[in-house]
Design a protein around this nucleic acid. Structure first.
Length: 510
RNA sequence: GGCCCGUUCGUCUAGGGGUUAGGACGCAUCCCUUUCACGGAUGAAACACGGGUUCGAUUCCCGUACGGGCUACCA
């Protein structure tokens, strides 16, 4: 390992849709490694497949990274560094990839192939019919195809000049051991015979991922390639390309992250998964397909909780700490501690993380976050009042919106009353008890939870037993909730009076 | 099918040749609380299987099973 080399990592998504949480985790791990080593974190857009380009995806990726707090310091949307442009379609215009592809051809490590789609199809069908175990364009089959290895030099020249459509393929050798080190998995050993002659440059002049990412990683001086495990099978081909380019020494270190798996069932997490929590950081609307997906931001996740949950999917700090600030993550992060096995996504635990962060929030902070919901419901109360409600309800909530849902009765007078309690507890005598108690409450000064509690006690001692569940239902409508004295304190005596009177009027006929 | 990767409680994981195999989520019971929640306590719950290596394997090696990934002019 070259210790002199500055850590430069990149997140390189293709703009083919909304960034799903697996992608965010990959970005996060890249970010953490960069920050830990005071390195650079780059966003590169890999838009080499024009047929799959989705409008808005790039903006989505940028916004998602910003929201999650894992911002690149270089690249598309984050300011050009010394290696612009950072969009592969733009880099293609500069002829960067063509140059490398031709270099490989000149070295005899790649070749032109003129086969049409139909010819390729026919070849595969033929191989399948012949029960060839893995039908692919490789060191054997290429000799039966139309390419610069089988055609004469003159023919090739003629076809090239006449504008015949072609691709450039990697000439993968027969029976050669390819070895490389993966930081997470250790040494990998693969025989080249298992690798096909990958297309490097497509007929539209665009590079494939295989060529493009290597060229860019080299030119952008990337030190570590951190990507998902789905890339592991093609990594040996990539090693070969570095070698043929004479860039073995400059090859970045590799780290293949374990996949995030579906919570139930099998397979890797997909955007369509409906296990209860979103698969996207932000709302995503695909204009082309019309599909809509909700995001973590929109259902009320805190970005800190979101990345905390993600970082622990496949990594842990080596102790029992689970709530980690971004600073702590950076400090403790290391690729060596990344797990090898895939991690099943657990929605329950994910919610728990948000709950932990919610509890740590200050009541005024929460009140501010609750404001939009209150506004929506035309509720206009002082911030102090809202803050008190937040303080009281937050222990029960997972999300800010839970405070609204669970504490609604603190904002709005109840119109319905828990039926079970009413049926069981409400009697003509209840009215008297409640009214007497109200009088005592009116004489409670100052109107604090402590004094209210004291009023209850003396009332119960000197007058009669208090039916707490009934009182609670009359004031809040609900059979359960936080301490009644606390609720009463927040509501204040005026609201209590009003609620009790209204409730009695409604219930009297029951 | 072929190639590659993986396998510790239901889930996320710690650990690692000799441990009562630890923590967290979830679950259950109890305590606290006039209720729910929070908090506290307790409990049920795991080294996939078979062979080696070894005095001793959950830990190392090899197989098998199972799971996953890849197998495009997609990334």
């Amino acid at each position: 390992m070259n210790v002199e080399k500055k850590v430069r990592v990149r997140f390189a998504p293709s703009p083919t849709g909304g960034l799903h949480i697996g992608g965010v985790r990959t970005a996060l791990f890249n970010y953490l490694l960069a920050k830990k080593h005071q390195g650079d974190f780059i966003l590169r857009i890999e838009d080499t497949d024009q047929t799959r380009y989705v409008k808005g995806a790039e903006e989505y990726i940028i916004e998602a990274l910003k929201w999650a707090g894992i911002e690149p310091n270089e690249g598309v949307g984050f300011g050009d560094g010394a290696y612009a442009p950072y969009r592969q379609s733009e880099r293609k215009q500069l002829g960067i990839y063509q140059k490398y592809a031709e270099k490989l051809i000149a070295a005899g490590s790649a070749y032109y192939a003129f086969d049409t789609e139909e010819e390729l199809d026919a070849m595969r069908k033929k191989l399948e019919a012949a029960k060839v175990i893995s039908p692919q364009y490789n060191h054997i089959t290429r000799m039966n195809m139309r390419n610069s290895l089988t055609l004469s030099g003159d023919e090739v020249k003629k076809m090239l000049n006449s504008g015949t459509s072609y691709v450039i393929r990697l000439k993968v050798p027969r029976n050669e051991e390819i070895r490389f080190l993966d930081i997470i998995r250790g040494w990998m050993l693969v025989n080249s015979s298992a690798i096909d002659d990958k297309v490097l440059l497509k007929s539209d002049g665009m590079p494939t991922y295989h060529l493009a990412h290597i060229v860019d990683d080299i030119e952008m001086k990337i030190s570590h390639v951190i990507r998902g495990e789905e890339w592991l099978p093609s990594a040996p081909a990539h090693v070969l390309i570095y070698k043929y380019l004479g860039l073995e020494k400059e090859m970045p270190q590799m780290a293949h992250l374990p996949l995030i798996l579906k919570p139930d069932g099998k397979g890797k997490l997909s955007k369509r998964d409906t296990s209860g929590l979103p698969m996207f950081p932000l709302n995503w609307h695909d204009e082309r397909t019309g599909e809509r997906y909700i995001g973590y931001r929109e259902i009320g996740f805190f970005p800190e909780a979101f990345i905390n949950m993600l970082v622990l999917l496949g990594w842990n700090p080596g102790n029992n700490q689970e709530i980690l600030s971004k600073g702590e993550m950076i400090q403790m992060f290391s690729l060596e501690k990344v797990h090898k096995a895939g991690a099943k996504f657990d929605p329950e635990k994910t919610k728990w993380f948000n709950q932990q962060y919610l509890r740590k929030k200050d009541k005024y902070e929460l009140a501010k976050m609750l404001e939009p919901i209150l506004k929506e419901n035309n509720i206009d109360l002082s911030q102090e009042y809202t803050a008190q409600v937040c303080e009281l309800i937050k222990e029960k909530a997972h999300f800010v919106k839970d405070i609204w849902e669970m504490g609604k009765y603190l904002f709005i007078e109840p119109s319905v009353y828990d039926e079970k309690i009413i049926q069981k507890k409400w009697t003509p005598e209840s009215k008297k008890m409640i009214e007497q108690l109200l009088t005592e409450l009116q004489n409670t000064h100052p109107f604090t939870a402590e004094n209210i509690h004291h009023t209850f006690e003396t009332f119960a001692q000197q007058k009669e037993k208090i039916d707490y569940p009934l009182l609670r239902v009359i004031v809040t409508g609900h059979a359960s909730g936080p301490s009644l004295a606390n609720i009463l304190e927040i509501l204040g005596i005026q609201k209590i009076e009003q609620r009790i009177n209204n409730a009695i009027n409604k219930l009297i006929g029951v």
